[in-house]
Simulated assay, not measured.
Amino acid sequence: ADVSIATLFAHVPDGKDALIFDDGDDRHVWLAAAVRERPAGQSVLAALRRCLAERGPFAGDLPPEQRRKRDLIVGTPALREYSRRLWIAAEGPLAEAIAAETGRGPADMTVRALARYVLEIPELAGAEPDPRAALDAVFDLLESGWAERA
């Protein structure tokens, strides 16, 4: 684009990490939609599991260019942290959607905790050797609760 690096970064205040990602606003929309538009009888957690399983490190059938981008993000600590911040920024809208669907308030600690836990899954499970199995393990835990003995 015939622009110096300094000029480019002057227009990208979040730094070079922001050049790899969009602003994350659409994430708020599709996460809330996954909760609000889930099929009758499907739990909030099942809807969110399905939604995440189709994206990022969990999607199995990505086109090669998206697979390269995913691998770059997962393999670069600074990009993974930036990605995590974008995920966590969706906590408020996701908590509002969960609250609306469960009859609780968005400030309810259990609603906020569930939203945060779900939004931590891409960072936590995305770099595992089998990201999809890790995603399923975390959702299994969220759905059944912690058992002291395996």
Rank of each mutant, 00 (worst) to 15 (best):
A137K: 01
A113Q: 12
F9K: 12
L119C: 07
L62V: 04
A34M: 09
A32D: 02
A32N: 06
W87A: 10
S43G: 14
P106N: 08
D25F: 09
A18F: 04
A97M: 03
G105I: 02
A10P: 00
V138T: 07
S43W: 09
A150C: 02
F139V: 01
A95Y: 08
A33I: 00
K69T: 13
V111T: 13
V138Y: 13
G75M: 02
G56P: 02
L79G: 05
L135Q: 06
L31D: 05
R67S: 08
A89M: 07
A97I: 10
L19F: 05
M109S: 14
L31M: 15
A99N: 08
C51V: 04
P13L: 11
G15H: 09
I20K: 06
R67F: 01
I98Q: 09
D108H: 05
C51E: 15
A59N: 12
P77T: 02
Q66P: 00
A150Y: 03
T7Q: 15
C51N: 12
D17S: 14
I20V: 15
R27T: 13
H28T: 07
W30K: 03
A115I: 07
A40G: 10
R27Y: 08
L86C: 02
L135A: 03
E91K: 15
E54L: 13
A150P: 12
E123V: 00
P64V: 01
I73W: 04
R27H: 14
L52D: 06
P77W: 10
P77D: 10
H28Y: 03
R80K: 13
E54R: 15
V35F: 06
W30A: 05
T76P: 00
G103A: 09
R70G: 01
E148R: 11
G105V: 06
T110S: 14
D71G: 06
R84Q: 11
V74H: 01
L8T: 11
G145F: 01
R36H: 10
V12C: 13
R132I: 01
E91N: 11
L142W: 15
R104K: 14
A6T: 11
G41P: 04
D26P: 00
A46T: 06
E148D: 11
S83Y: 12
P77Q: 12
D140C: 03
D108W: 07
L52W: 04
L48A: 03
A97C: 10
L119K: 11
L62N: 04
E96A: 15
P131D: 08
D17A: 15
L86I: 14
P39N: 10
